[in-house]
Each structure stands twice: as C-alpha cells, then as structure tokens.
Design a protein around this nucleic acid. Structure first.
Lengths: 226, 226
DNA sequence: GACGAAAAGTGAGTGCGCTCATATTTATTG
DNA sequence: CAATAAATATGAGCGCACTCACTTTTCGTC
C-alpha cells in the first residue's frame, strides 16, 4: 500500500512507459474526502470536548470510518492536531507575502506581521493546539523529525531567511547565515509557549512582548556582535 | 489518607494537646524508603531503556512494590521523571549561591553559571528528561500548575530576581519588576530545548549560544528600552 | 466483462497508564 | 493486650491509543 501520509505523487513507476499515469480520479477523490472528514470530525470534537477528552474511536465514528482508518491517515492522535499547525505556517507565510503594505517595511514589522498572523490563525484552536504542539517539541518525538515536519520547518526558515536578506545588507546577511533563522525558530516557539499561557485580555501581554523583543532582536541582527 | 505527594509535616491535629506529635519513626522511614526505591528503579530503567519504553509495571516490580503503590507516590509517570528536574533546579541554585568566585561577578556570569550548572546536572538524564519535561510545558498539563511545580518555579524566579537586584541599580531593578525573571524563565526553557536538540560535541553550540545571548540580554536589562 | 494486483478500509486484539475497592500494616487509646 | 482508627499497599480492572491480519474496493490489462 502506498504511504497515505504523503500526498505527493508517487515516484514514477518503472513499468509505465511514456504516458503520464492519470492516478485515477475516484481513488484520489475518495482519499481526500476521507481525510477531510476525519479532520473536520476531529476539529469539532476537539473544540467541543478538548483534545484529551476526545477519543480516536469518537473521531472515527463521527467521520464515518473504522478506527483503524484514522491511523491510516495520521500516525498518531497528536498528528491530527498538528495538521492545523501546518496549515497555520503556510497561511502566515502567504499572508505576509501578499500584504502590499509590507513591501518596503522594516524587518521587525515583517516579522511581527508573520508571528502575529500565526497566533491569530491559531486562536480558534488555542484550547487544543498546545497539547499536541508542545509534545511535538520533544527530542524523542517522531513528529519533529518526520519528513513532513522537517519540510514544514525548512519552508518556514527559508521564508524568514528571505525576509532577512531583503532587509539587511548582503554582507551582514551572509555573515549571519543560518543562525538567525534558527534562533528565530526557537524564539517563535518561545512566543507560542508564552501565548498559550497568556491569560491577559486579547493576549495583550504576548503582543507587547512580541513588539518589544522583535524591535530589540532586529537591532541585534543589524549591528549586534555575533 | 494523608496526601503522600507532600512531605510536609501534617497540620497540627486538633486532638493532640501540648506534646509534640512524634509522627512515629517507622512510618516516615518506610515511606521515604519506598519513595527512594521507586525513584532509583525508575532511574535505572529510564537510563537503560528510555522513558517511553519503560512501563510503570516494570518500575513497580523493580522497586518491589505493587503498581498501584507507584501512583500513591507520583501522580503520573511524567511526574517521576520530573523529580530529577526538581532536584536540578535546587542543586543549581545552591551551587551558584555557594560559589565564592561569583560573589562580585557580573550578572551575565552569574546567570551563565546558573544555567550551565543546570544543564550539567541534567546531562546524565538527557536521554529521558526531555520527554517528561517538555510535556510539563503544556498549558493543559496538571504538572505545570501543581502546587509543587508552582513552588519550584517561584523559588527559581525569586533567585533570579535576587541576582538581578544584586547587580543592577535599585531603580532599574524596581522598574523591571517581575518581567525580567519571567522572561528569563522562558529563555531558560528555550535554552533547554536547544540543548536537548543540540548534537554538537560537548554541547558546544548550546554553550556558545548561552554566552552570546546572555551577554546581550544583560546589556538589555541594564539599559534596554523596556 | 473477467482477472489479478494493489490500495484502502476494517475491527478484534494488545499493552499501556492509571483507578479504586479492598486488604494489610502501623499507630493510638483505654 | 485488645480494639479501633488511620495510613499505606495491593492488583484486578478500565478505557485509552495504536496494530495487524484480514476483507473489500478500485482499476489497469486482456
């Protein structure tokens, strides 16, 4: 059976010659339909009862599939919640890219917009995203090292790297290399933790912290002594 | 039954008049003996097979108690691993306090010594501590809000606050208030995450990162624009 | 269409962390 | 030394996430 965890087109089968394999319609449609019904069933249940209280049996029942099927699409229950986390990263990158007012803006403004967009997107899922998200940080977690997660992280780091290169002198950017995006990744995780625990109205504390620390951090990038 | 999760002396029983209740010897000795045998059994197993692969049944068997007994002493399996984390914090605070060469040192040196002592202490447990430690960060985690954890965190923050007050002008310290220690707590968690994932020889990357970021961070505390 | 192979779906089964009604041990009191 | 009470220990049992040997569906090929 083809690995259902990747939506990638399978590697060109050696037996099929020239004609592009159509990868027949019904299969693919059923597959994405099943996947979506699992995701939306999980979302409803997570939101109404929370992550821990939702069982995979319930998700399967609500989605109209067998319990085993759920695990054909997601390796673990955590993985289901992480689906929303992935969507968040892609959404935030697209948002920042698409915003014309950010074109010539300072680096800290772009980064603020990026992180702000991320936590805004996650807000509706706050009640359950932390459970899975934080678990994925464990070194022992297979999630953090799964091809999917690595690819997601790479996309994010690439984007941050792009933002830095847009705003910094070439020399300085090259000097910083990969350290800056990596540090930013850690920083982002810290902000998320802060956000998850932040009980101030409208998450003011997180936003204030974001603003101050970013202004300071970008100053560091520009002139700081790395 | 008296809560076995606290080692505190129980509140003065209303029936006993003047005489100090001896809190008879055998009980207390048995209790700490059992607790220690559970902890050391767990440690051996965690180190040899890892955290996830170790079952609570095994721990109980190796400790020579019933499985239920393990849960009379620790609320969850995570809690057992966190025992070592607690010990680490207390040990690090004591170490920094006891080091005479740090008496008049700069703030960044004290903080470096603090965090360095912490990760050095955790080194032998690296293979398993992350699993439980990171899980305790979840907002939904009961661990993060348990009286024990809160008290530990308070002790740590108090200590950091002390260090700051020793090194900064009174005005500045008062102006910073609780923000600085809290930020430092997040920073410390970030460093731990970094450390857990750091595969460089002798964790050089972590130490280098520590050094640079602390020097920068303390400069921020002194003059920065909070 | 009929056939075979591969993809997708199934659900009883497994071992886990953890609970709880009960049994055992320890301490106190007359 | 009973008798009672309280602390502690016990292990069968529970519901969970997850597995795997198997069935059903899909689809290219003749």
């Amino acid at each position: 059976m083809q690995d259902p965890f990747t939506d990638d087109v399978p590697p060109e089968p050696h037996s099929t010659p020239a004609a592009v394999r159509p990868i027949s319609g019904r299969r693919a449609r059923n597959k994405t339909a099943t996947r979506e019904s699992i995701v939306s069933a999980a979302l409803e249940l997570f939101e109404s009862k929370g992550f821990e209280a939702t069982t995979t049996r319930e998700i399967a029942m609500k989605a109209g599939v067998a319990e085993g099927t759920v695990f054909n699409y997601f390796e673990t229950k955590d993985d289901i919640a992480l689906h929303f986390f992935e969507a968040e990263v892609d959404h935030a990158i697209a948002t920042v890219r698409a915003d014309p007012t950010l074109k010539g803006a300072a680096l800290e403004e772009k980064l603020f917009a990026l992180v702000h967009s991320q936590i805004e997107y996650l807000a509706p899922y706050e009640s359950f995203i932390g459970a899975a998200f934080v678990r994925a940080l464990r070194p022992s977690s297979k999630l953090a090292l799964s091809p999917r997660a690595l690819e997601l992280r790479a996309r994010y780091l690439d984007f941050v790297q792009d933002l830095i290169e847009e705003s910094l002198p070439k020399r300085r950017a090259r000097q910083l290399g990969w350290i800056a995006p990596q540090a930013f990744w850690i920083y982002y995780l810290g902000v998320l933790l802060y956000w998850l625990h932040d009980s101030s109205p409208a998450k003011q504390n997180t936003l204030a912290f974001l603003d101050r620390s970013l202004r300071f951090g970008t100053a560091f990038l520009r002139e700081g002594g790395i």
